[in-house]
């Protein structure tokens, strides 16, 4: 799958509190959550972003709380994937589970600037910065996670597993 969009660039340690502040956790509807996505780190994000766009950040993206509301809100805004130098553990799991693609690539994360035009070939983990004319290779997913992604997330994967009596 090819994804294409503009980069929204952030620094290190973007935590789930700024991705989706706790004051909005009294609901769980993805569209409602999306209305406050990135509110405490970038008040202009929602006005600026277009569906298909890509969030790019440096180290430890998604640290802090386990709230699945954070990747859910990002996905519901129409962001197509997140590229970061590294991801926090729980956020990584959550995003894979709900089907928000993540790519770990420190070089791409560092050279990309706000507004750069990016293209991502998801299956191969290829990231192209069209604005700068540079190509990068993201860290490949472990095989088990690829299987999860291919099956459409953890729920679909588990459904099939339960159906075949493997549990």
């Amino acid at each position: 799958m090819k994804l294409k969009g503009k980069a929204h660039k952030y620094g290190a340690n973007v935590n789930t509190d700024v991705i989706l502040p706790a004051r909005y956790l009294n609901v769980s509807d993805p569209q409602e959550l999306a209305k406050h996505c990135m509110e405490d780190i970038d008040g202009e994000f929602l006005g600026r972003m277009r569906p298909g766009d890509i969030i790019v950040a440096t180290a430890n993206f998604g640290s802090g709380s386990s709230r699945e509301h954070a990747p859910t809100a990002i996905k519901a805004t129409g962001i197509s994937c997140v590229i970061a130098s590294s991801f926090a553990r729980i956020f990584f799991r959550n995003a894979i589970n709900i089907g928000l693609p993540l790519l770990e690539c420190a070089q791409a994360a560092e050279v990309t600037d706000m507004g750069d035009e990016l293209e991502v070939e998801l299956a191969r983990g290829e990231i192209t910065n069209l604005t700068k004319g540079l190509k990068f290779q993201a860290k490949p997913y472990p095989e088990f996670m690829l299987e999860l992604i291919e099956k459409g997330g953890l729920i679909e994967y588990t459904k099939q597993r339960l159906a075949t009596g493997r549990s």
Binding site: S66, N94, N97, I98, I155
Partner: peptide, 10 residues
């Protein structure tokens, strides 16, 4: 260890 809501559902 902490996880997200979907992991916990499973």
């Amino acid at each position: 260890t902490g996880m997200g809501s979907t992991d916990i559902a499973v």
